[in-house]
Amino acid sequence: MTTTSKHDERIAVMTFASVYPHYITKVENKGRTIAELHQVLEWLTGFDDTKLQTLINDKVTFKTFFKKAKLNPNAHLIKGVICGYRIEAIETQLTKEVRYLDKLVDELAKGRKMEKILRNA
């Protein structure tokens, strides 16, 4: 399943700050912590807590968010289906990166072990 240009543009202009509270709610409702969420975010993007807060305060779009990120070299190991899309089949790089993040948050909320989420094992 490929994404449409309209879908890709909608993701590009969405702000990270608008989605971040939903990530928190999702993981906390399943017994995980904000610290674990931040660990996942830092693994994927290289952003520490301070940089993450700056990006939230600045209300950057996902396009800017991932442009500033230093994507983990093992991010390509994130596979599967999220939001109805098979990650490895997504052709638009930004949409793929956002879906990487969605998949990691989903795995965290589902109780997967951190070593597996961070593709260390």
Score class of each variant (00 low, 15 high):
R112S: 00
L77W: 02
A121R: 01
V19G: 00
W43T: 00
A69K: 11
K103E: 08
V13A: 01
K51N: 07
I87Q: 07
K110M: 03
E115H: 03
E97H: 08
V81S: 08
L37N: 09
K51I: 13
S18F: 11
K30Y: 02
T15A: 02
V13E: 07
R99P: 00
F16Y: 15
V27Q: 07
K79S: 15
A17E: 15
I78E: 08
K6Q: 11
T4N: 02
Y100H: 10
E88D: 14
R10W: 05
E9D: 10
V105S: 07
K51S: 13
L101Y: 04
K70Q: 09
R32F: 09
D8A: 15
K70N: 12
I78Y: 12
R32L: 07
I82L: 01
V98F: 14
A17L: 03
T15P: 08
L77Q: 14
L94D: 10
I34V: 15
D48I: 06
V98S: 09
S18Y: 07
I11K: 05
T33N: 11
K116R: 04
V81R: 08
I87L: 14
L44S: 00
F47M: 06
M114R: 01
A121Y: 01
E88M: 09
M114N: 06
G31C: 07
K116M: 03
V27Y: 09
E9R: 11
R86K: 12
T95P: 00
K79I: 07
K68Y: 13
K103F: 03
K110H: 08
L108Y: 02
I34N: 02
G46S: 04
L37A: 09
L55K: 14
S5I: 10
E115K: 10
H7G: 01
K59Y: 05
G111C: 04
C83H: 06
T54Q: 14
H38Y: 04
H7M: 10
T54K: 11
E28Q: 14
L37V: 10
R86M: 05
K113R: 11
S18M: 05
F66G: 13
H7A: 06
L37G: 12
K68Q: 15
